[in-house]
Every structure is written in structure tokens, then in C-alpha cells.
Simulated assay, not measured.
Amino acid sequence: MKVLIVDDNPKIMAIAKVHLKKESLEVLCVEDGKRALESAHREKPDLILLDVDMPEMSGFEVCQALKDDTVLCMIPVIFLSAADDNGSRIRGLDLGAVDYVTKPFDSFELRARVRAAMRTKQLQDQLATLNQDLEKRVEQRTDKINQLLRQKDAFVNQLSHDLKTPLTPLLALLPMVANRTEDIESKRMLDLVMDNVKYMKNLTEMTLQLAQLNSSRISLKLEKVDLISEIGNVIKSLSSLFEENSIKVVNNTSSPLYVEADRMLIMEVFHNLISNTVKYTNGKGFVYFDAIIDSSETITVSVRDNGIGMTEMQLKRVFEEFYKVDDSRNDRSSTGLGLSICQRIIEKHGGRIWVESQGIGQGTTIYFTLPVRQGELETPASVGSLKQR
């Protein structure tokens, strides 16, 4: 390993050089600060012994220059100085030196301090090498993962295309065949086939959408969206669904709350959440909509029902792709992807989504958050009141 001694006193340099060579070190010597910086750039020493009191450029100034240099800043510095006051010691250490040795120095002490500094430098170099190796491995692994993700996206896109192609004529032709069939049993079987074809089409489209949402290349069509207005719109558009299932809607939102969002995707979140709510709420149930702005400048929306509720195990798995709770495993209207898609959409907007339930028969509440649109914080702090969580 290599040591650079910087001292304007040739005798001190010679003595230090003799002792350090006993440590099997390569020793370089220069007599002023300017040459020290030039030598440090050229030789890249593993340690610098630096005198404090030198003409033109003091040791403190040299140390400052070393620590300001992105190439040389990691070279450890030990000050050699006749100044034995605490002020000089503290200043040297504050500048980034690893040690401070006073003159005249004891040769054994100097060698011990140099050995300690060299051990630290070796450990630093090993750590730097490990970090570089780790960064390289992470980069390689990331490239591999991205390659696999691209392959997966391409596969899903191709698969969806290949599945949709034969489904299109089936969707068009099966109703025509059913209309021409008079046999009741044949009509029943055709209706069953049609239901399964529709399910396959829906599953294919949702699988493709989920793959697109998983891709980092998806771009959101952001615009100013009044979340409260959209809640009202989706309630109005689905009013017949609520009536058919004898579900009463309670909308506790009123004042505008603006977010920067992709309107179509946010509407899809509401449609998916409401579909789940209707599916698992028995007749004459209730659905509550609430929204607030909390102290972290995010809007929290909740959709709460008094339906069948969920177990702790179901809550843990509810966002898994293709997961269906027990009552819907054979339900052809459910793909098991609705909440997974909601999660991807909300996370793409910088928010989060979660589900709470006190258990079977206790209803379910789905919460999601979205960042408040910049410049809209003058909106009233609360619209509606979320259930305490």
C-alpha cells in the first residue's frame, strides 16, 4: 500500500519515511500543499500524512481541498503537527482527518496509528468493492426482471388477442342460433354456452387490463377531477342496479374535492367497488359513501356496506389476482380480478387501498386514498365522516 508524506521539513519526512518503510509500505514525499494535491491525483495514495504549518498552503487547506474533491475525498488523512492545542486537533478532525499526531512523534505510536488507518482504509475499499459488485448484480437482476416482464406483457397481449379472436364470432352468432332454435332444452344449453363465452370475454379483457396496469409503460390521462361529482355520477348511473337488489344508497359527500386523476380509471374503481358491494350485500341492505381530506393532504374515500363481511384470512387475500371468496368461486360474473385492478389503478395515482371488516355478518368497508390536487387545499377540511378506523 502507498503512503504520501507532506511536510516542508525534510528531516521530519526522512524520519517518518524510514519508520513507515518498516511496515512494508511504499512511501512518497512532497514538501508543499500544491505538490501534495498533484501527487494525490497522480498516485492515488492509500493514506496521507499531512503537516499543518506549511507555507503558501496550510495542511488544513490541503485537507479541505482533498475532502472537496470527489476523487480524493475517501483518502484518509493523519495530521502531523507541532501544535498540541485542542483547537488545532478539533479543527483537523472536523475537516475529516482520521487522526492527529503531534511532533516530535514516537515512532512506534506513529506506526500503530498508520496501521490502524490502513486497516480502516482496507475495510472501506472492500466495502466499496462489495457495493459495486452488489450494484452490478442488482442492475443485472433488474434487467432480467424487466426482460421477463416484457415477455410476460407480450405473452398476455398475444394470448388475449388469440382468445378474443374466436370469441367475437361466437358472441355474434350464438344469439342468432338461439333465436332460430325452438327446442327449449337446446335454448337452455345455448344460453349456458353464451354465459360462458361472455365470462371468457370478460376474463380476457380484465386480464389484459391488469397486465397493462402492471406495466411501467402505462401513462395516465391526468385531468382535474371532482371526486365528489364522480361519486354522484356513478351512483346515478347504477341506480337501477341498487333498485333491483333492494339496496339503499347513503351518500354523505357534498362539497367538491379535486384530484389530478385519470377520470375513466377512477370511474372504473368505483364501478368495481360497487359491483362487489352489491354482490355481497343481501336484499334491503345499505351502501354508504364518505370522503374526507386528512392532515397529510390526501383524500380518503370509503365505500361501506352492511353485507356478509369477511374473515381475517379473506382480508389478507382480497387483493390477490383471481382470488374469489368462497361464495363466488363458481360465480361466472366474477373474475377475481376486480379488486386487483382497483389496487393497481389507485397505486398508479400515488394512493393506497385497503379493506376492513369486523367479521362474517358485520359488513365491509373499502378505503382508498388519492393525493389532493395542488392548489385545492382551500377545500373544506371534511365532507362526510369516515367510520373510525
Rank of each mutant, 00 (worst) to 15 (best):
P175A: 14
P175C: 12
P175F: 09
M176G: 04
M176H: 11
M176I: 15
M176V: 15
V177S: 11
A178K: 15
A178C: 05
A178L: 12
N179T: 01
N179Q: 00
N179Y: 01
N179P: 00
N179E: 15
R180F: 09
R180K: 11
R180N: 09
R180S: 12
T181H: 05
E182C: 07
D183N: 15
D183M: 05
D183A: 06
D183P: 05
I184R: 12
I184N: 10
I184K: 15
E185D: 14
E185G: 04
E185R: 13
E185S: 13
S186G: 03
K187C: 09
K187Y: 03
K187M: 08
K187S: 05
R188A: 07
R188M: 05
M189G: 02
M189W: 12
M189Y: 08
L190H: 00
L190M: 00
D191G: 10
D191S: 12
L192M: 10
L192G: 05
L192T: 14
V193I: 15
V193Y: 08
V193K: 09
M194F: 03
M194H: 06
M194Y: 11
N196D: 07
N196A: 06
V197P: 00
V197Y: 00
V197W: 00
M200Y: 05
M200A: 14
M200Q: 06
N202C: 04
N202A: 02
N202R: 10
L203D: 10
L203S: 10
T204V: 06
E205H: 02
E205I: 00
M206C: 02
T207R: 01
T207V: 03
L208T: 07
L208K: 12
L208R: 10
L208C: 07
Q209S: 11
Q209R: 14
Q209A: 09
Q209G: 04
L210D: 08
L210G: 02
Q212G: 07
Q212D: 08
Q212A: 10
Q212E: 11
L213F: 08
L213C: 01
L213P: 01
N214L: 08
N214Y: 07
N214M: 12
S215N: 11
S215Q: 06
S215K: 08
S215G: 03
S215M: 07
S216T: 06
S216K: 13
S216V: 05
S216G: 04
S216Q: 12
R217V: 07
R217F: 07
